[in-house]
Nucleic acid binder design. Sequence first.
DNA 1: TGTACATCAGTGAACGCGCGTTCACTGATGTAC
DNA 2: TGTACATCAGTGAACGCGCGTTCACTGATGTAC
Lengths: 184, 184
Amino acid sequence: VKVSKEQAAENRERILSEAARLFRERGLSGVGVDALTDAAGLTHGSLYSQFGSKDRLMAEAVNHAFVSTGANAGRIKSIAEAIATYLSAWHRDAPGVGCTMAALGCEMPRQSKAVRRSFTEGVKGAVARLGGLMSARRKRQRENDALVVVATMVGAMILARAVDDPKLSDRILTATLARLNEQL
Amino acid sequence: VKVSKEQAAENRERILSEAARLFRERGLSGVGVDALTDAAGLTHGSLYSQFGSKDRLMAEAVNHAFVSTGANAGRIKSIAEAIATYLSAWHRDAPGVGCTMAALGCEMPRQSKAVRRSFTEGVKGAVARLGGLMSARRKRQRENDALVVVATMVGAMILARAVDDPKLSDRILTATLARLNEQL
DNA sequence: TGTACATCAGTGAACGCGCGTTCACTGATGTAC
DNA sequence: TGTACATCAGTGAACGCGCGTTCACTGATGTAC
């Protein structure tokens, strides 16, 4: 059942975007190849035609996740807007379309070189984008400021999602948001 | 091969401390029951005599991990000392004996109630301990300050371990350490 | 103190299941003439 | 434009493997007498 080149490219894109969502929702090791191809309306064999292995798909899906969230974040015009959007209950409750660092960060130390490289590039991109909104005079200082803000927001989001106590979860987000707003 | 009560209690403790280390090194889903009991010099069946299921062991091991790192952290006398110890290359490279939040945070949203409850109690304990070192006048403000510092350190540690670029990893730690020292 | 026996922590074979991957095959695409 | 055929994206059965869990059994512990 060969399909047209356009159809094949479309299938590839659909696998990637479903993978980017599923991996962020359930973790890299929490989603099997059947779940990935089922979500795209295909059978598991097609994954091997398109990507060769689950690991290669993971590397591309991590990149895809960073790119799609980065496209949304690109519209943001100030640091205040960036942190308010990031540290929201909406973002906490929608990991599948949210920050890749907060969703997959803890799994990275145990991933292949290819997957970690995609992730590292994504982190650099996010820091560069936020650095562009910073007010410090020197570029290096803006990057360092962005690095710390990113680390703070990622840590707060991970903890807000992790804890089993809704009040504590909300408090992590609001306290972090208030503190970052004070500083900037 | 029944063993004495003291021996059984010792075996239980050994499984727990090995589990607390292995889970932080390889993740909750990355360690099987055989690996857990092998590390304690027992067979997998003994895990079911002692804990009933892997999930119950996970809940106890998460608590054990928090308690053992909390005992070390209890000796720390100032915020400056706490953040310098936390944001060190040594801590980054020793996840098995390090912060439970940084090691397992991302996996928590998908865990059972029992595991998440252990984790949540651990987070509250860590925040309370750090809050005790804070200088704000009101208790609630000290807790909020501690919450943000914990989130910042956890996020920085997760990213420093995740990225595949040693220079960026070091920079995440040093920039975060410098910024937190400025603020406090 | 010595003997008989119930207890139960730990053993190891076996279970069903889902994992990532392989591979012979299918059949529409798209090219060569 | 029409026909013949090579290509290759996708199918689905099958693979070996490790997972968490069960269970009949072992045999030293620890208690009852």
